[in-house]
Each structure stands twice: as C-alpha cells, then as structure tokens.
Amino acid sequence: MIILKKSFFRLLLAIILTQATICILEARPISYPNSWTVMQQYNWEKTTVHIHYSPNAKNSIGFLGAYYEKEKDRLYSLQWNHLIFRKNQKKSQSNLYSKIHLGRLNKEISQTNVFHSAFNLSYDWETRKHFLLYAAEVEYTDDIGLKSTTFHQKARIGIAPYVAPYGKLHTWVMLQFEHHPDDSDSDNHFILTPMLRFFKGDYLCEIGLNSNNQILFNSIIRF
C-alpha cells in the first residue's frame, strides 16, 4: 500500500514536473530577475509547453511549443513577454502585459511548415483574496495561399476561500470565460471553466472541467 502511494505521488510529481503551465502565464508571465519558468497547459484546444528566462522583472524570453489536438498541428516558436505597466498598492497589485510569439507551425494536413505569430495583451488585478484577469489575443497564420487571422479573448475571476501565510498551500476557486468567435466549432465559441488553483512556494497547478466536459490541467515551476 505504501509502495503504491509512493508510486502514485511520484507519478503525480512527474506529471507536474514534465508537463511543467501557461495558467500563470495568463497572469504572471514574468518571474523574478535571473530565473527560469517552466509552464504547461492542457486544455480542449491544445497542449502547450513554455520554457522561459527572466533577465529582469519586466521581461522574459523563451520557447513556446504547442500541439493542437484537433488539427494535430505542432507549433515551435520564440516568445517575448513584457510588463508594460504595474501598479503596486498596499493591498493589491495590477499588471498590464504584452506577449508576442513568432514561430513555425507544422501543418499535419498539408505536411507543410508555415509562419505563425500571435500578439496578446492581458490585464490582471490581484489582492490576497480576489483575482481578476482579462486577456485578448490575435493569431496570424501565413498558410500557403490562405492567410488567416483569428481573435480570442478570455476573462477570469477568482476567490481565495482562506488566506494562507507565505510558504503554505494557497487555494483559489476560479471561473474562466473564453470567447473564440473564429473557431469552426460553434460549441467552442463560448466556454466556461470552473477550476481550482493550488499554489505553494515555486509550484502551481490548476485543475478544471469546462462547459463541454473537457479537462483543463495547468502547472508551473519556477527556479
């Protein structure tokens, strides 16, 4: 039984470590100076891995890789995140971030590599008990003979049921609204995802189930 428990926890840790989150990328895409961040996102649309280096508290650069479930396309790109503005207050913090990625999209259907880029702006406001986020993104794909631009936006609200001290386990209850007006499947135009965020030290993970009964799992490690 003990061996089984150990194996389970090892497996869980391995999943978190190897699939390392985009979730906080939604809120905090930049870490402290001279640090690394590994992030992973798994949702209805894609599986994403980010490996980022923050030379300072205002910028981070790194690799973004994604696998799109439906199209079976693969993305390899470079991403730059920039903190445009931060307002630090006694009990709250708000941030405006920009994120740009430029890369190559490997299209499964045509077996071709095409240019892909995206520009994202996100604003968040956080206290120790409340969290708000809005993010909008424009994606551009330069397919052979078919150039396309798509728009997505999302918002999140979160409440911490208790306030944990530094270094202890923090828990958040969150609700995410997604709007994908350009998606070919109308079920994906509006998606609602209730989720739980767990946060301790340098580790964070999020688990949710969306309105189409699809799982969301995100994780992040900073070092």
């Binding site: 906080i24 508290a57 630090n88 913090q93 206290t127 270094g167 946060f199 900073r222």
Partner: peptide, 13 residues
C-alpha cells in the same frame, strides 16, 4: 514596508 506583495510568487521574488 513594501507595496504590491500579494502572493507567494511576489514574496519569493
């Protein structure tokens, strides 16, 4: 006394 310390990531930073 610091402004903007609202989460563990801030404290860690």
């Amino acid at each position: 006394h610091v402004k903007g310390l609202v989460c563990d990531f801030c404290a860690r930073s």
